[in-house]
């Protein structure tokens, strides 16, 4: 039984879709159940995902030049790995800044810092680059860019050469 099937069996109703493109097992889950699924992945002995290898986000604004419409804007992508069983799993959460709760400007996802220490910096980076907030993160501030920087650089609507120098000409 693969990790993906285990997750499907336990959280069937929370899963939006699954695929295994080129052998990478992937589950897209509802944002509300992220923490529960992550806890299940970490604490179940047959899964034992002790590594949060990577956590990042993807911006799907104007995906494929606008030819493919997605009903969400961002996707938070987590890659898990288990040293003991040597298997991997990708978990994705779709978030949208238009439908953020409480009329907030930034999309929000639950933080994984309580489960894996590595989530701390990864989530800070996602906040810095995409402006996605993580609920429950102890120290959510910019990590790569400086505090004076306005906007989030990896969003697709941020021009790649829009500079905000601290000193020197505004070229």
């Amino acid at each position: 039984m693969t990790p993906l099937e285990k997750v499907q069996e336990k959280f069937g109703k929370d899963i939006v879709e699954t695929h295994a493109f080129r052998g990478d097992e992937t589950a897209v889950i509802r944002p509300a159940s992220l923490l529960a699924v992550a806890k299940f992945l970490k604490d179940t002995p047959e899964l034992d995902f002790n590594y949060l290898m990577d956590l990042t986000a993807v911006d799907y604004l104007f995906f494929a030049g606008g030819r493919i419409q997605k009903e969400f804007r961002f996707e938070v992508v987590c890659h898990f790995y288990s040293i003991k069983h040597n298997h991997r799993l990708r978990l994705k959460v779709q978030v949208d800044d238009r439908e953020a709760p409480d009329g907030r400007k930034h999309p929000e996802v639950d933080s994984l810092t309580s489960l894996w220490a590595s989530a701390d910096w990864y989530e800070r980076e996602v906040w810095d680059m995409y402006g996605i907030r993580f609920k429950g993160h102890p120290n959510l501030k910019r990590i790569l860019m400086y505090e004076e920087f306005v906007g989030h650089a990896l969003r697709k609507d941020y021009p790649f050469d829009k500079r905000q120098p601290l000193i020197g000409p505004q070229n």
């Binding site: 493109f21 990577d54 493919i68 890659h79």
Partner: peptide
């Protein structure tokens, strides 16, 4: 599609995650 592939870098697991449209 999207893929993740790790190799052993000099400092540890060096993984690339590519999303193609």
């Amino acid at each position: 599609g999207e893929v993740y592939f790790p190799v052993e870098g000099a400092n540890g697991e060096l993984g690339f995650y590519i999303v193609s449209d």
